[in-house]
Structure formats: C-alpha cells, structure tokens
C-alpha cells in the first residue's frame, strides 16, 4: 500500500533556513543541509526547499545548495521559489533535485507547465498553489501571497493537471502559520477535483492535525515547517501516532 507522506519544508533565504508567520517576520532556523540530513534520518518521506531570497546571485546560490543537498541525503526532494523558465528547471534537476515546484510563474504563463512536463516528465513537476478564502470562494494568490487574483482554486487545479502537473502543493494562506489545522474541506474537494497527488500545506500544529488532514482532507502528503524546525513535533513520534490511527506511513 502506498503510504501517506510527511514532508518537512525548509524556506531558504541566501542559503540559510528561515521561518516566519504568514510569510513575514523571518527568523533564522539553521543550515539547510544539516536540517535536511536530520529529517532524512528521522524518516521524513520527502523534503521541500523553497527559496525566498531575492538577490541577483540567487540562482547560483540555490544551484550550489541543491548540489550539496543531493550529495548528503538519500530521499527525494523538491526545489521551488522563483522558478520561471525551462533553464531554471534544467539546472536544478541536473544538480540533483528530484522535482521542481512552480508557483507564480505558472499562473503568469501557464504554458510553462506544459513545457516542463513535456521536456522533463510530469513526475518532476509540482505546481504550488497559494489560496485564500474570500466570500466562500477560494482565490489564488501570487508572489508569496502578496498579490490577489480572481482565479478560482479548483478551476486552476484542474487546468494544471490537464497541462501536465504531476502533483499539487496547496497552501491555504488562511491556515498557514496559525497551527490550527489544515484546510481539510478545501483539500477533500481538491482530491475530488483532480486525479494527481495533493500535498497539504499550512496550519500544522499538532499530531491530530496530521490525522485529520489524511482522514478528512484526503491529502496524499502533508507539509509543515516550523513545528519540525523547532522540535515541537518529533517526526518519529508523529509517524508512530499516525500508525496507531491506522494511517499507512513508512516507519
């Protein structure tokens, strides 16, 4: 049986891990390679690295970091943050990333999804979607949540699937950083809307939240950052508890 995945996410700024709440007030959370190695040892199923730096050297720094990560860990990892061209994707995959995550650039130029999927295969393409509920409708947001759009979450999810996304990483901006649980209703609807795996993100605070996101939200994977970085939840223990709740996990 395919297991549910637990994915620690590392936000990267200028080569360091950082964490903020709702994308602001960033704090230093350690060396990415060190953290990645620790998570891999603790049975994390996958890792996501999101580069939020905005410097000119960004591309080079990230490519070098990816190479260091690939040399150190033996579980899959995804890299995202400002990826906007086939060339960006090519460099990261060549340096050892298993998947890339594309967000704003896919909304601005949806054909990028087709191009990446055709060239490198849909298995390596995660389309990240940040959304917020406005008057009962989920609307997608861009640029790390700063820019609102009129695009409906579920319509966009269907479109990215049709264009060749291998997976969707859905972050509820209403839940991100709150530690009050995942957006389970929207997640369950997403799972009915598309036929590709869904990674749930935003809101993890307790072990129970993970149980709910798999049982109620029907997510295929759950992503979290700060609760792992600050050792609020231990990965070993989390998986043990999920197993007692009859959720298939790799231990």
């Amino acid at each position: 049986m395919l297991t549910k995945r637990i994915i620690p996410c590392l936000d990267i700024k200028d080569g360091r891990t950082v964490k903020g709440v709702n994308f602001i007030n960033l704090r230093d959370a350690g060396d990415p390679v060190e953290l990645a190695t620790k998570y891999a040892y603790q049975n994390a199923d996958e890792l996501v690295f999101l580069d939020i730096s905005a410097t000119e050297q960004k591309r080079k720094t990230l490519a070098e970091l990816v190479l260091r990560i690939a040399a150190a860990i033996d579980i899959p990892f995804t890299v995202g943050g400002g990826i906007s061209s086939i060339e960006d994707v090519s460099v990261l995959l060549k340096n050892g990333a298993d998947k890339v995550s594309i967000n704003s650039a896919a909304v601005k130029r949806p054909n990028l999804i087709n191009e990446v999927a055709t060239r490198f295969g849909n298995q390596c393409l995660v389309v990240a979607i940040d959304a917020k509920q406005i008057n009962n409708d989920w609307k997608i947001h861009l640029v790390g949540g700063k820019e609102a759009t009129k695009i409906d979450l579920f319509e966009w999810a269907r479109e990215v699937e049709n264009r060749g996304a291998g997976e969707i990483l859905f972050t509820s901006m209403d839940h991100d950083g709150t530690k009050n649980g995942f957006a389970n209703k929207a997640l369950a609807k997403l799972s009915e809307t598309v036929n590709i795996p869904i990674i749930a993100s935003g809101g993890a605070g307790t072990i129970e939240h993970f149980t709910e996101v798999f049982k109620i939200g029907n997510a295929d994977a759950a992503l979290a950052a700060s609760i792992f970085h600050y050792d609020e939840i231990d990965l070993f223990n989390l998986k043990k508890q999920l197993k007692t709740q009859h959720i298939a996990v790799r231990i």
């Binding site: 395919l2 995945r5 795996p197």
Partner: peptide, 8 residues
C-alpha cells in the same frame, strides 16, 4: 491517483 508517488 496517477502518478503513484511515494513510498510503497
């Protein structure tokens, strides 16, 4: 769900 993605 296709692709199968993860640990089995």
């Amino acid at each position: 769900k296709v692709p199968q993605m993860g640990w089995n």
